[in-house]
Write a protein that binds this DNA or RNA. Structure first.
Lengths: 343, 343
DNA sequence: TTCACAAATGCAAACGCTTGCATTATTCTT
DNA sequence: AAGAATAATGCAAGCGTTTGCATTTGTGAA
């Protein structure tokens, strides 16, 4: 495997010059640059990242911490991050905290500290003070995606506003018996997502002067089956069946759609359903939703990171950027049916 | 940030000894080991991976190459790999080849060559000869998951056998008008998966003396919507509607289930459906399937890798291990309905 | 042409580890 | 108890880059 010395010799210059060309420090003449590049090509030379990392302190590698990989949102953010990083010549080292405690512990106390990464992107990670402190001690850029982190530039949607918008959409269609399926408590760890979305829901309701009915509140685990089960309970509520459901995620909303079908409840004539995400299956199911685009969020996180890596002042300006979301109208919501007072 | 010298001084030993303790070379006395470990803990010392990598040539990092992240199979393999690697103290650097050509090119010609990884795991990647040669030139262990690779230890299921088993299951239930939804041609790149599964299907059919009917062959893109559309076409075939469908993936099979529901075709009374994967949604949909467990496959790939990294002879023995799969009976298949000869 | 200054290049000392070899401490034999 | 063998440790030379500083080359002005 060729080393920088081989290249230098081959091009008839010093290793310093080769290094400068490869890192394009702009102080090398055109002629020399070309010679070096030729030598590089001829020898199939690729720099050793270890050596470069050791000497410069820069690894050209970004750590990405994610709670798990199998959820739609995470997967898509990671893909966005990955593709953007590739364009910048960076590698992505993935830390998936699947099993909660155990791996989480070692990732924060060991893996991230090996000086393998120049920066880290934390996806939907509510970090403990200790973890945050550890990351800060690294003195490397850190950006969060999916929720606010104290003192860290983050990207996130406004969950309260999103939920409010979804609910208001239903209200504007004349619905008053609106159910909500929120996330179960174990998802609170993700920036209180269930609570926030529920808050938006309740806010919209109370603004419209609609009284919240306890029995119109369900919760599930953000999956299709979870949404299905929750919807089943809600929809069997015979004397006060909702005419609309706002599910805190598209997957749960799809579960609602399937439940309605199994109960022979027509959507949207008898039941409107709205979700959040614009999941890849939503279009297929004709689901009206508030869309967010995690792929884009991932790319944007990289932009922020690159900027931070460029200027060495840890520019504390862009604390929490709120990402825009968009109401996507499809076939699952419509005018509320006339209320059948007999039920 | 503490360096190995600090630790050495703090423990009153040489850096060599510290290094030995940390890499547990078994030649350090118990006493000394303890002293060193204490110093490490006190100083919160974590080794620099760059320095270690440069000096030893080992990075404790594995490259994982995957075609994309959003498909169930890939995500799960990666999760399996990640969790196993973590246990071994290895990092995982992810290369997702989403946009085909562009990134693929740079990953193979540049990223993987930076000596950032000790080995690579290629997931469902049919590699070109050139790419394979490049990887071999690295002289680092390589294991493939998802399909055979010439001269490389790989893990994969026997697609032909799986398809045969699925089809035989339907035949054993008395079905003779069996349709198949295979993958479209662009998925051929994944080790001819569509072709192989179709071959198994046709093999089982011909063994049973059942004539294959052209109009009972569909194809789709391995997604739920794709399966839905394909099934719609198949099931509208009024004069020769299939009584069973074997879909090349669970997602497509779920599409079939949804199509059947929309057409008011009862499953399994009027239509049996079987898929392949044991996707996380399959249980919910009551889908009979041939299960494989990608998570497990990922872990197993790591086992092989660790073994290869341990012994320096690139043990060429375990070329392509065939993974076991399992018929999982659920509610979507049953005895064939009596044939209505009037249709 | 010469000089001053800027641009281009080279020199060589880090960077923080690992490891072969040499040295010292310990244990076992006889 | 002495010597041999073995275990534990230390020394110091790399590993392949980057980069501050010194040096050489090139340029424009006088």
């Amino acid at each position: 495997m060729a080393s920088i010395d081989d290249v230098a010799r081959h091009a008839g210059v010093s290793t310093a010059t080769v290094s400068r060309v490869l890192n394009n420090t702009r102080t090398v003449s055109e002629k020399t640059t070309e010679k070096v590049l030729n030598a590089v090509a001829e020898l199939d030379y690729v720099m050793s990242s270890s050596a470069s990392g050791l000497a410069s302190g820069r690894t050209k590698n970004i750590g990405v911490v994610v709670p798990e990989l199998t959820r739609w949102y995470f997967t898509n953010v990671v893909e966005g991050v990955e593709s953007a990083l590739l364009e910048h010549g960076y590698d992505l080292t993935l830390y998936s905290l699947n099993d909660g405690g155990a791996s989480r512990q070692s990732v924060f106390s060991h893996f991230l500290l090996r000086q393998r990464v120049d920066a880290v992107i934390a996806i939907s990670q509510e970090l403990t003070d200790d973890e945050l402190a550890r990351l800060r001690a690294l003195n490397k850029p850190l950006v969060g995606v999916g929720g606010p982190l104290p003192g860290v530039p983050t990207l996130s949607i406004d969950d309260v506003a999103v939920a409010r918008q979804a609910t208001e959409h239903l209200i504007s269609l004349g619905h008053t018996r609106i159910a909500h399926i929120s996330g179960t408590v174990e998802f609170e760890a993700d920036f209180h997502l269930p609570t926030n979305r529920r808050a938006g829901f309740e806010g919209a309701l109370s603004d419209a002067g609609i009284k919240l009915h306890e029995r119109l509140l369900g919760s599930a685990d953000f999956t299709i089956p979870g949404g299905y089960t929750a919807a089943m309970t809600l929809l069997k509520e015979t004397d006060h069946r909702p005419t609309a459901i706002f599910a805190a995620s598209d997957e749960m909303a799809i579960g609602c759609l399937l439940a309605a079908k199994d109960l022979n409840i027509r959507v949207p004539e008898e039941l409107s359903v709205i979700g959040v995400d614009n999941h890849s299956l939503s279009e297929f199911f004709g689901l009206t939703t508030i869309g967010q685009s995690p792929h884009q969020q991932g790319r944007q996180a990289v932009d922020i990171l690159m900027q931070a890596l460029g200027s060495d002042h840890p520019s504390e300006e862009n604390i929490n950027t709120t990402l825009k979301t968009e109401l996507i109208l499809r076939a699952s919501t419509s005018q509320a049916p006339p209320i059948d007072w007999n039920r």
